[in-house]
Design a protein around this nucleic acid. Structure first.
Lengths: 158, 158
DNA sequence: CCTTGTTTGCTATAACATAGCGTTGTTTTG
DNA sequence: CAAAACAACGCTATGTTATAGCAAACAAGG
């Protein structure tokens, strides 16, 4: 099973887990939460993994269609809500899109770097902002998304 | 909601502008950009100021209605796009809402602290993340929104 | 088996946003 | 000034994103 357990990976670099590993991880997280990793959820999570980047709910719905008959929006949104609740998927707010989460966020928020040229997304643990939050403000959840150009696309443009 | 006792800024580099000042500022920024501050735009900007916090496009549309006959969505969205382009309004992504901007962001992004109890929003200049961005990534725009409980609401809950 | 709660499918509708076209009004220019 | 060019606005229509609510199927435990 996992020779690469993401256990408490506080490194800042992306851990490139294989698709199988990501699926296994999802299954394990579900079990740990006493939730069911049903065939439908597995199917949808697989599509999210295959997307390998942010994907929109209705695009997911289209991908689901061939094997699934004629799924309706709630089918997808329910799964997305489920995975989001477990921290397995994040919503990218400014894209109205969803993306699998490879990190263990032990109380950390995710921070995304989104290349608008190649559409690739890098996820990090959010940097600690504690110095600059308003006095007494208690943060429950943060949305941190940076849009721009990744190193490759910047180089290619030059 | 009159002028609240919070202020919108904690001794940062910025002045808590009155509504008149904010309107004047908008007018000036338009002029500086060679854009027209038309009666419609003034009306809509006034509603945004009065909202004194994030407001949704269709709520704005409702507020516009009494004086304006029967405005359609594009009327509001065009104005919002216009103000956003000039940096006078920000979109709060995770709320699908819009809020006037009191700061001069000379190349800085805005950072919002949104109290989910009282719905008040504090805006700051974004903290500098330069240490923790992926190597070579060039940020064009950042979305930084923190959701939680402001000092008053935290105190009130205790 | 029976009860309880969860998951799924479905219809319907709500909420958010833009495309595109014609008209009006302002600015520019010959 | 007149004509051309452009910006702003109103409107119809449609596209996109997301949820409410109900009934059937299904799992889990006594």
């Amino acid at each position: 099973m996992g020779q690469d357990h993401h256990g408490h990976d506080h490194g800042h670099d992306h851990t490139p887990a294989s698709k199988e590993e990501r699926m296994e991880n999802a299954r394990r997280v579900c079990q740990q939460h006493g939730e069911r990793f049903t065939p439908l959820r597995e199917h949808i999570f697989g599509l999210l993994i295959e997307a390998d980047g942010p994907i929109k709910a209705y695009d997911l719905l289209d991908l689901l269609r061939p094997e699934h008959g004629s799924p309706k929006p709630p089918t997808v949104y329910r799964a997305l809500e489920f995975f989001t609740r477990l921290g397995l998927v994040h919503r990218v707010e400014a894209l109205n899109a969803y993306i699998t989460c490879d990190h263990m966020h032990d109380g950390h928020s995710a921070e995304f770097f989104i290349c608008e040229t190649c559409d690739r997304v890098q996820e990090r643990h959010a940097h600690d902002h504690s110095e600059c939050i308003p006095k007494g403000f208690v943060i429950k959840r943060s949305v941190i998304e940076h849009y721009g150009s990744c190193v490759d696309c910047t180089a290619a443009a030059a």
